[in-house]
């Protein structure tokens, strides 16, 4: 009953807006203050994607953008080659051991990763981009959003 009244009279105020704005602005601030973290994240991101395709490490761009109620991470990762010999990196999450005849599969991985924004990333052109985009709402005590999640091929 009291909860109902509270809802009726309480939560309509501007403090909810203030809270939301504060949450976003601080997330952006903390990102600006954490270049090391962003570099580390870039490295990890590239490591994961490199299991499937060869990327141009020097031309990777990672940006953050505020999109009304969330912060989005935009990663632009130029692909050099998808016809890459199999790599047996430690911790390959996909680990089906069989590296042969996978030329088509990695391309597919790229397509999934790029899903929301890129029109035709699946092509074999040497410098396609993977654009990963992922939104993530910040939970209360988490100051920095996790990196984009590379898609798995299945």
């Amino acid at each position: 009953m009291i909860d109902f009244l509270k809802r009726l009279f309480g939560q309509t105020g501007s403090s909810a807006t203030a809270k939301e704005r504060l949450r976003l602005v601080l997330m952006t601030d903390h990102l600006e203050l954490a270049p090391d973290m962003i570099d580390a994240m870039k490295r990890d991101l590239v490591d994961v994607i490199s299991r499937y395709v060869e990327v141009d490490r020097d031309r990777i761009e990672v940006n953050f953008e505020q999109q009304d109620r969330a912060l989005a991470m935009l990663a632009n990762i130029p692909i050099l080659s998808v016809n890459r010999p199999p790599v047996n990196r430690a911790g390959n999450g996909n680990g089906n051991g069989n590296g042969h005849g996978r030329a088509a599969e990695p391309a597919q991985a790229a397509a999934v990763a790029a899903a929301p924004n890129v029109s035709s990333p699946g092509a074999q052109a040497a410098t396609d981009s993977i654009v990963t985009r992922r939104r993530r709402r910040r939970k209360k005590n988490q100051s920095i959003p996790a990196g984009a999640k590379p898609a798995t091929a299945h």
Binding site: F9, G10, S15, A18, K19, L22, N141
Partner: peptide, 18 residues
């Protein structure tokens, strides 16, 4: 104002600053 939801509360502020 806090009660009316028109001002950040002590908890709102300190949930962030901790």
């Amino acid at each position: 104002l806090v009660k009316k939801g028109k001002m950040l509360s002590v908890d709102d502020v300190n949930a962030i600053l901790r």
